[in-house]
Amino acid sequence: MTDDEARALIRTTLHQVAPDADLDAVEPGETLQEALDLDSIDFLNLVTGLCESTGFEIPERDYPQLSTLEGAVDYLTGLGSAG
């Protein structure tokens, strides 16, 4: 998965779980949960959506790596190259 694909996937998935959240408002380095007011259920729905799209199981211990937009993009592109 390329950087752009990962970014697009996060955007689409986020729109499904929280249509009222605005990804453009997130500053680099800001955590998604804080910037977008995602509660733990929103976040779990986001991770579930990413798992379903990529076919990879994302374990709970990897959640911290997904906390920022950049981190999540890196994580997803990493999944692609490993697979």
Partner: peptide, 9 residues
């Protein structure tokens, strides 16, 4: 699996 994980709430 991620689809059946639980959260504190």
């Amino acid at each position: 699996p991620v689809t059946s994980r639980l959260v504190l709430p």
